[in-house]
Amino acid sequence: MRLTVLGGCGAWPEAGQACSGYLVEHDGFRLLVDLGYATLPRLLERVSVDQVDAVFISHGHPDHCADVNPLLRARALRDDPPAPLPVYALPGALDAVLALDRPGMLDAAYVLHEFTAGSRLDIGPFRAQTRLLPHWVPNAGVRLAAGDRVLAYTGDSGPSPDVVELARDADLLLAEATYVDEVPEDSQGYQSSARQAGRQAADAGAGHLLLTHLRPGTDPAAARAAAADEYDGQVAVATTGLILDLP
């Protein structure tokens, strides 16, 4: 299983970066997990739009799904449009993005599979277990298994025992870490810090920890250090272009 980071910024993209978006590949199947602001140009540096096999969206905030619109436009408006793209999302999560164009314009470009958090999904070679994790809007964390490798992704989530269960013995935990240490009072329970992500990775027994969704301006080294205080495994920060092959 290979993970390519298209973007890892939280809220808005820094110069030269992009918001949350990840390309996960196994046995030639290409799954996009989230597709936030500025991720499509990063994707197109690697593959063409017709080479994407499916999309999974954790929740409806635009820094996780805004570039679904240009992805579908690029598929729908070509002379030889590919087959409809399977898109997996919670009910209503993509309503705003799919309403950006005139009615019907993108209908032939995708097939929307709405699921309930907690559902198990088969997406190509991936066995996906979803779990509702705490955020301001419904957010589905996902545990992707293929072959004997497991990647767990939180979307955006406050700290929760459900994150630990989602990541139990995973090879890689891709965890939201908007803040380094202290989460502001108005965001507590809805977003996490790098320190909390490290603690949860340790509790889960995850093999590696990849911090993502850092707020622009955050010092990556400080985030890594805070997570490493709680977690003895390898810690990295998701930046555009990072590629990880799950061992």
Rank of each mutant, 00 (worst) to 15 (best):
R46C: 10
R46H: 13
V47K: 10
S48I: 07
V49L: 11
D50H: 14
Q51N: 11
V52H: 05
V52N: 03
A54F: 05
A54W: 07
A54R: 06
I57M: 07
S58N: 13
H59E: 12
H59S: 10
H59V: 04
H61T: 11
H61Y: 11
H61D: 12
P62N: 02
H64K: 05
H64Y: 06
C65N: 06
C65E: 01
C65P: 02
D67V: 01
D67K: 00
V68L: 08
N69K: 11
P70L: 05
L71D: 00
L71E: 04
L72K: 04
L72T: 01
L72D: 05
R73E: 15
R73A: 15
L77P: 14
L77I: 14
L77Q: 14
R78Y: 13
D80T: 15
D80K: 15
A83F: 11
P84D: 09
P84V: 08
P84C: 04
L85W: 09
L85V: 09
V87H: 02
A89V: 08
L90Q: 07
L90F: 01
P91D: 07
P91I: 09
L94C: 08
L94V: 02
L94P: 01
L94E: 01
D95R: 12
A96K: 09
V97E: 03
V97L: 01
V97W: 00
L98W: 02
L98P: 03
A99T: 10
A99V: 07
L100V: 05
L100C: 09
L100G: 00
